Simulated assay, not measured.
Amino acid sequence: MTDPGLERWRLILGEPSAGALGGLSGDAAERDAALDWLYGRDEGLARRDIRRHGGRGPSQLTTVDWLDGITRLFPKETVERLQRDAVERYEVNDIVTDPAVLERVEPNPSLLRAVLRTKHLMNPEVLRLARRIVDAVVRDLVARLATEVRQSFSGARARRSTRFKQARDFDARRTIRANLGRYNPEDQRIYVETPYFLSRSRRHLAQWQVILLVDQSGSMVSSVIHSAVTAACLWGLPGVKTHLIAFDTAVVDLTSDVSDPVELLMKTQLGGGTDIARAVRYAAQLVEQPRRAIVAVVSDFFEGGSVNDLVRSVGALVDQGTIVLGLAALDEQADPAYDRDCAQKLADAGATMGAMTPGELAAFVAERVGR
Rank of each mutant, 00 (worst) to 15 (best):
V240M: 01
D49M: 12
W235K: 13
L61R: 15
A283S: 06
A351E: 02
V142D: 03
R51K: 14
T352D: 02
G40K: 12
L198Q: 11
R281N: 12
Q269M: 08
R56A: 14
R131Q: 12
L264D: 06
A20R: 13
T71W: 00
S59N: 05
Q216H: 14
D300P: 08
R189S: 05
D140W: 01
S227C: 04
R203N: 12
P4S: 05
P107D: 03
A343C: 10
F153G: 00
S256D: 12
V138I: 15
V287E: 05
D98V: 11
A347P: 00
D215I: 12
A328F: 00
G14W: 00
A363L: 04
I276F: 06
V324W: 11
L116S: 08
R144E: 10
G239F: 10
E125M: 14
G19K: 07
Y338D: 13
G272M: 14
G354R: 11
A34C: 12
G239L: 07
L330D: 10
V295M: 02
E332C: 07
M356F: 06
Q188V: 10
I133L: 03
T274V: 04
E106S: 09
N184K: 06
R278K: 14
R200Q: 13
S152Q: 14
R340W: 02
V295P: 00
A231L: 01
V79F: 12
K241F: 11
V105F: 11
F301H: 07
R368P: 03
F301D: 07
G239Y: 13
V240Q: 01
K267N: 10
R292P: 04
D335R: 15
G273M: 06
S313M: 10
L121R: 14
F364V: 12
P109M: 11
I95T: 04
T249N: 14
Q207G: 08
V287L: 07
A296S: 09
V318F: 03
H204I: 13
A232Q: 01
K76F: 02
G14V: 09
R139V: 06
I133D: 00
H120C: 07
V224Y: 01
Y90R: 07
R163M: 09
T268Q: 02
V192I: 15
E77T: 04
R10A: 11
L180K: 05
R150F: 07
R312G: 01
G236W: 01
L24R: 09
T357Q: 03
G14K: 05
L330K: 12
R132M: 11
V280N: 02
E303G: 03
A46I: 13
R128S: 13
A158M: 13
R291T: 05
L212Y: 01
V258L: 11
L205P: 02
R200W: 09
R177Q: 07
G350N: 07
G14R: 06
V280D: 02
T118A: 09
G19H: 05
G23N: 05
R81Q: 14
G23P: 03
A362M: 09
G272V: 15
L244N: 06
A33S: 13
T162D: 08
S110D: 06
G40D: 11
T194F: 06
L141M: 15
L112A: 07
L11C: 07
I12H: 05
